[in-house]
Write a protein that binds this DNA or RNA. Structure first.
Length: 137
DNA sequence: GCCAACGTTGGC
DNA sequence: GCCAACGTTGGC
C-alpha cells in the first residue's frame, strides 16, 4: 500500500464536491513526474486531499477507486488518469503553515516542490498528517 | 497582483 | 545537447 497527496483548487474541484459526487476522474495532469505517481497508484491507496490557492490546507481523505488508465482528456501525448472516491473529511484541516513548521513533514512535495500536484507520502508522513487532522483512517 | 520556482520549448 | 526565453503554478 502506498500513500499519496493530491492538490486541487477548491473553486475548480473541492473535497466537498468529491464527497457529494462519490467519485471523480483525476485527469488533466500534464506533468511527467505527477503522471508517473498517478501510474504508481493502486486501488485502495489512501490519498490526502489538499486545497491549493484558496484554503491552503489538507482537508480530507480520498482513496483510489480505479488504477491508472489513459486520460480521455488528452488529445495527444501519453497521459494517465485515475478515479478517486471520498473517504472522510478531516475533523480539523491541516494548514500549509502547520505543515511547514512540522519537523516530520519537511520532505514532502508540498514543502520541497510547491508546484507538484500529485506526490507520494511515506507511512510516517501520512499518519502524522492524519493525527494533526485529528482523524483516523 | 506580484514574483519565485520550475518545466517546456526551440534556436543554435 | 545546451541554454535562453517563455509559460504556468501557487504561495504570499
Amino acid at each position: 500500500m502506498n500513500y499519496w497527496l493530491v492538490k486541487s483548487e477548491p473553486f475548480v474541484f473541492s473535497f466537498d464536491q468529491l464527497m457529494s459526487d462519490g467519485k471523480t476522474r483525476w485527469d488533466g495532469v500534464r506533468n511527467y513526474q505527477a503522471r508517473n505517481f498517478l501510474r504508481a497508484m493502486d486501488v485502495g491507496d489512501p490519498v490526502l486531499f489538499y486545497h491549493s490557492n484558496e484554503g491552503l490546507e489538507v482537508v480530507g481523505i480520498a482513496k483510489v477507486l480505479q488504477a491508472n488508465y489513459p486520460d480521455p482528456t488528452a488529445e495527444k501525448g501519453d497521459w494517465s488518469a485515475v478515479d478517486l472516491g471520498p473517504v472522510k473529511p478531516f475533523k480539523r484541516p491541516v494548514s500549509l503553515v502547520e505543515i511547514k513548521s512540522n519537523e516530520g513533514l519537511q520532505n514532502i512535495g508540498l514543502v520541497r516542490n510547491g508546484r507538484l500536484s500529485v506526490m507520494p507520502l511515506t507511512f510516517d508522513e501520512f499518519h502524522l498528517l492524519l493525527s494533526l487532522g485529528e482523524t483516523e483512517l
